[in-house]
Design a protein around this nucleic acid. Structure first.
Ligand SMILES: [Mn+2]
Ligand SMILES: [Mn+2]
Ligand SMILES: [Zn+2]
Ligand SMILES: [Zn+2]
Lengths: 144, 144
DNA sequence: TGACAAATGCAACACTCTTGCATATATTAA
DNA sequence: TTAATATATGCAAGAGTGTTGCATTTGTCA
């Protein structure tokens, strides 16, 4: 039995007119495998384990072009840096534990109600939004 | 008729064991008068108009101590910098127009429903949260 | 295989924010 | 009112994230 590759990253890249370089293919694989949004430093160290030594500037540039082309989502968890998540995953929000740093997904976000209301009340056209919760995860509550 | 000063900032500062320096008093007045959260550069230029030349390091230090003491709230609108809002104003969220940069308040946030649900489902103890909407304000929609 | 546009590495830089240290000032007690 | 002291400030240096210019390398496609 072979592990199924969910996405053919080379084709994905060509679809959006980006060259399929080793660094890009490896980065997309890293993001696809990640269970939480990754920052540039983490991506760099994961690439290194795959034998790819990418310069931070290159990773920042990759993240920008991937975001522009819709391959990844920029995640801002109010840290001093951005994280990135593979776009093929369904859009969602996050729970961030301020003690252990664990990051959990929140799905079934019915923010659509908000959007409709704001549209009608304020005439504001919402393009995107951010809803993040900060606090203590189940584990960390025990330790206090 | 005299304009009412809503808060006696000198007393507020002494309450939280901070010295009432000219820079601090002026900064609190600036934040009290502001209709949207201000960043450090904006605070600096507003202070300058009041004849106070404060070093950025001083303003950053003020914002940190004011946050710690609960005099101001740190507002993260996913820009590359933080903004600050006078705490005496009711807690609320924001609408940020990506075209003109206008910032509007959203009140009557019934996020409490969310919090309760997450607490029961995930056992996560929420300390605070962030809900921000990004898009186009009424005006900017016309200009497209 | 070769031409060409695009990607990369590296260094320099921008920006926000922090910190060490010498000096200045607000507060308090005399 | 003054003196002592803890605290606040200015300035300069530096940390961290992210960007950019430029020379070189590499992927793509003819
Ligand atoms: Mn996620
Ligand atoms: Mn506000
Ligand atoms: Zn935790
Ligand atoms: Zn606008």
């Amino acid at each position: 039995m072979v592990v199924q590759v969910k996405h053919d990253c080379k084709i994905e890249l060509h679809k959006v007119a980006l060259k399929a370089t080793p660094a890009r293919l490896a980065t997309l694989k890293v993001l696809e495998a990640a269970s939480k949004p990754l920052d540039v430093a983490t991506i760099k160290s994961k690439l290194k384990k795959d034998g790819i030594n990418a310069d931070p500037a290159t990773i920042f540039r990759m993240m920008n072009s991937f975001s522009d082309k819709g391959l990844v989502r920029e995640i801002n968890l109010q840290e001093s840096k951005l994280r990135y998540e593979y776009s093929a995953k369904e859009d969602h929000h996050h729970l961030l534990c301020e003690s252990c740093g664990s990051i959990e997904d929140i799905s079934d976000c019915n923010i659509e109600t908000w959007e409709k209301e704001l549209r009608e009340k304020k005439g504001f056209m919402i393009k995107h939004h951010s809803l993040e919760f900060f606090g203590l995860c189940k584990n960390c509550q025990k330790l206090i």
